[in-house]
Design a protein around this nucleic acid. Structure first.
Lengths: 144, 144
DNA sequence: CGAAGGTTGATGCAGTTGCATGAAAATAGA
DNA sequence: TCTATTTTCATGCAACTGCATCAACCTTCG
């Protein structure tokens, strides 16, 4: 078995690291400049908004976002403290809880999207020709 | 001007985030399991090894690695404390210093590569068909 | 049932990162 | 020259992450 990456594989890995860093830095900078919280807050709020009234269990959100358990637990703390998320007990499992987005959470997510969307366009869309984004997305999908 | 990403652009951005996270997690886990330091140490050691006897100025390494200045300053502290890198004064600019890899640094880098290389193959190479890696690398290159 | 094992979530502590700032030296410009 | 600006690097402090571990509950299986 060939356990050394060939040149193209290595280039893809390095490109993946660098592209993600550059794009993330751009996007996070736009959010910060607008006085908004980081991307991780957006991701969590978006998942919770999509989940609707029912909300999500922390472990579900953890898997959806690929977060470590302790990081999600603490992110939930911060979101709750900021009034963006409500923690609600769940009858079926007394260890558990439901995380439910609040109206303030939905509002913040919307305001973040107003900055986030053009930042994605700037960091990704503007740099790819027509059709390339779809090709890139398909290839990246094979890695995750 | 269209400042909202289209569907493919958004998919590419999300794919970029997730693919990088999954691949990095795999690779870092392999290094940790082997009792080796994180990727950032490898990257720094590799740049310094390529720079040879002359070494690199911290600000050069900072730009090569896309590190924040304070993070590089502290990474250099740790590498020096671990005996992997030597800090040497530079006559031409008395603010500055040269970072020079030590034999122990070269040795560690080599041992890390023995784990890192197959991990890249596992996380990236094995998941792409022939030719796809080169396509992916080219597209990612446009983002950075 | 009842013990063993797995799942869910929180948390103390150490290490790392982000932010703001500072000190020292180099450079530019009047 | 000599003052203002920029560059290079470090660091105190707060926030965040990683690690280990714990407590509570659920599930499985003899």
């Amino acid at each position: 078995m060939d356990r050394k990456p060939d040149e193209a594989t290595e280039a893809a890995w390095i490109g993946l690291s660098r592209a993600q860093r550059v794009a993330t830095a751009t996007i996070e900078a736009r959010l910060k400049a607008a006085g908004l919280p980081p991307l991780s807050w957006y991701d969590a709020l978006w998942e919770l908004e999509r989940a609707g009234e029912a909300g999500l269990r922390p472990f579900e959100l953890e898997r959806a976002l690929l977060f470590e358990q302790y990081n999600l637990s603490r992110l939930a703390d911060r979101l709750e403290k900021a009034g963006l998320v409500e923690r609600r007990a769940v009858e079926a499992d007394r260890r558990g809880q439901m995380l439910i987005i609040t109206p303030a959470g939905r509002d913040l997510r919307r305001r973040m999207w107003a900055i986030y969307a053009p930042a994605i366009q700037e960091a990704v869309g503007d740099r790819l020709a027509a059709g390339e984004a779809a090709t890139l997305a398909a290839l990246l999908g094979k890695l995750a």
